[in-house]
């Protein structure tokens, strides 16, 4: 079914981060720990899906010369709503994410999907495309943050996994994992693994 493909493709074949090269900046910044990464992934999914829906409904009426401004206003409005919801229901995580919720407005995934899909497709398909791309983004974010939190702080979701005894033996947390350069290298490795299995993605 064609609509199912819209949901499944962005998880692997058209992953926003590893194939379309969108949404990199936030992937580096929020994946130091797992909890903010999951909240960020959910926020981006919601905003992408609904902004795709709204812009797709208006796609025949928006004048081409001002389309970027209209898209940005719609996205900014949705981000403000999501920001307020986060502040109300998960305040501690919202503090950790701080500026990056606002920066969802400039997250290339949103603009990228709006320009590439929502401007030319029907509302329901655009909504599904938004959910699919958000899910693909979330998948990579969870993989990255698991790696970085485990190796960089010895914990996952805030629960200390590496016991005190291992630290006594001389094991030290990998401090580089907390810095962005290692996130870049880790994404490179994820791409390597992905393309080894999915050889269609290898560039000629």
């Amino acid at each position: 079914m064609k609509n199912l493909k819209l949901l499944i493709n962005p998880l692997n074949n058209e992953n926003p981060i590893t194939v379309q090269v969108l949404g990199i900046c936030s992937a580096l910044a929020v994946t130091v720990q797992m909890k903010p990464a999951i909240v960020m992934a959910l926020s981006v999914t919601v905003v992408t899906a609904f902004s795709n829906l709204i812009i797709s409904m208006g796609r025949n009426t928006i004048p081409p010369r001002i389309r970027i401004i209209v898209q940005l206003v719609v996205v900014a409005f949705l981000v403000i709503v999501v920001d307020q919801l986060l502040k109300a229901y998960v305040y501690d995580v919202s503090k950790k994410l701080s500026v990056f919720v606002g920066l969802i407005i400039t997250n290339c995934i949103l603009m990228g999907r709006l320009e590439a899909f929502a401007m030319n497709n029907k509302p329901w398909e655009s909504f599904l495309d938004g959910i699919g791309n958000g899910a693909g983004y979330g998948l990579i974010l969870i993989a990255l943050s698991t790696f970085r939190e485990l190796l960089g702080s010895g914990s996952l979701m805030g629960y200390q996994l590496i016991p005190e005894s291992v630290y006594q033996l001389g094991y030290k947390d990998n401090g580089m994992m907390i810095l962005p350069p290692m996130a870049l290298i880790t994404v490179g490795l994820i791409i390597w693994i992905q393309r080894s299995y999915n050889t269609k993605l290898i560039e000629k």
Partner: peptide, 23 residues
Amino acid sequence: VPVPLRGLGLAFILTGLLAIAFM
């Protein structure tokens, strides 16, 4: 370069190394 790493994967790793250098 190993085939699956060519292109984008390598670009990520290179950027990471350049970032460490600029540190």
